[in-house]
């Protein structure tokens, strides 16, 4: 190979590497920064002083304020399940299974996942935008300058509030879904609520209810960590705040769906 062709090949290789580098390096940088963020978060979460006042405020903001939205989403899923499943089961001659299918689907998968996705929209965007706006207006710097660790005061409290509130909100979504599933069912084929629940819960075991509800703590962790991380690394004014809010929702929703795959498999292994 002549020297000139060698140079051409090298330049060509470098030229094709550059666009790839622009994607690959930020990708690994993002995960590296996330790792450092999680390390610092873990350190402040387990060492005093604890910000109980701010934690309670966040639990109220994340939990109570999201209750109507989550309950409404759960109720809608209950109605849809009842409407959709009735025809399908009747076609296969399994109409008697309807109540059980509605309740099983709600508590095992739909309730937890819908709660996670709804919360990633409401809370993820809220936290991302709030912390992002605090970052670009130097409020986080002001907190550090006041000798208050923003990771302890802002991040740990929000992440912990998400982790604690998600299972409770999932219960609310499950209850609303079951209730509206019954309403939908009773309009077609009258049945008392007591009978509906008794028939539906007849074969439900501890492993059908507890692990799927508890897995939403992982969803809460994902929403809290991703939203706080995206918020804390916001740069570039209002445009940056918008990006932080959007990326918080997109990434936390994506990670919730991916985590669900792993968690469902894990639950099946632990509770065969």
């Amino acid at each position: 190979m002549s020297p000139s062709s060698y140079v051409t090949v090298r330049n060509g290789a470098r030229g094709s590497w550059h666009p790839l580098k622009a994607v690959v390096i930020p990708f690994f940088e993002w995960f590296g920064e996330l790792g450092l963020f999680c390390g610092r978060l873990a350190r402040v979460a387990v060492t005093p002083p604890f910000e109980f006042g701010e934690l309670i405020r966040q639990m109220d903001s994340i939990g109570s304020m999201s209750l109507p939205l989550v309950a409404l989403a759960g109720a809608a899923i209950g109605v849809v399940l009842s409407l959709q499943t009735r025809d399908s089961l009747a076609r296969f001659g399994a109409a008697s299974m309807l109540l059980m299918v509605i309740i099983f689907t709600l508590i095992k998968e739909s309730g937890p996942v819908i709660t996670g996705l709804v919360m990633s929209g409401r809370v993820g965007a809220g936290i991302g935008a709030e912390l992002g706006s605090m970052q670009v207006t130097e409020q986080i710097d002001a907190m550090e300058a006041s000798a208050v660790d923003p990771y302890r005061y802002l991040v740990a409290t929000r992440v912990l509030a998400c982790v604690l509130m998600l299972p409770l909100l999932t219960l609310a979504a499950d209850c609303a879904g079951i209730l509206m599933g019954w309403v939908s069912q009773t309009l077609v084929e009258p049945i008392s609520l007591r009978q509906f629940i008794a028939s539906g819960l007849k074969d439900v075991m501890f492993s059908d209810f507890f692990p799927p509800t508890l897995k939403t703590t992982v969803f809460g962790l994902i929403i809290g960590v991703v939203a706080c991380f995206q918020g804390m690394r916001t740069r570039g004014g209002t445009e940056g705040v918008g990006k932080a809010a959007t990326s918080s929702v997109v990434l936390s929703s994506l990670f919730i769906i991916l985590a669900d795959v792993v968690l469902v498999r894990l639950i099946l292994v632990l509770y065969p």
């Binding site: 706006s133 605090m134 207006t137 130097e138 409020q139 710097d141 002001a142 907190m143 300058a145």
Partner: peptide, 13 residues
Amino acid sequence: RMGFLFQQGALYD
């Protein structure tokens, strides 16, 4: 032991 005043105030909103 230090106080810092930011250019835009940086009050917690």
